[in-house]
């Protein structure tokens, strides 16, 4: 698991609209250079923020990335 790589990617997705757009068009190409495990890469490719959180992605990032934020069930 590469906690830094996962979270720096999440941070960039939140703060860099151009990178977010490239990710939206082709996630695997956008993260090709990132130092991720196979599980992490698959979670990003699937835009699965819940899984990314399980893999060490910070909660406040996975809740707040425009267009990608996880929306837990209403309580």
């Amino acid at each position: 698991m590469s906690r830094y790589a996962v979270n720096s990617l999440l941070y960039r997705l939140k703060k860099d609209p151009e990178f977010r757009a490239r990710f939206g068009a082709d996630p695997l190409a956008a993260i090709a250079d990132a130092d991720l495990s196979a599980d992490e890469r698959a979670a990003f490719a699937a835009r699965d923020m819940r899984r990314i959180n399980e893999l060490g992605g910070y909660l406040h990032l996975v809740l707040s990335i425009p267009g990608l934020a996880v929306h837990p069930p209403r309580h």
Binding site: S64, I65, P66
Partner: peptide, 9 residues
């Protein structure tokens, strides 16, 4: 400032 702010942002 956050573009397309979600949730608490």
């Amino acid at each position: 400032r956050q573009d397309h702010a979600e949730a608490f942002d």
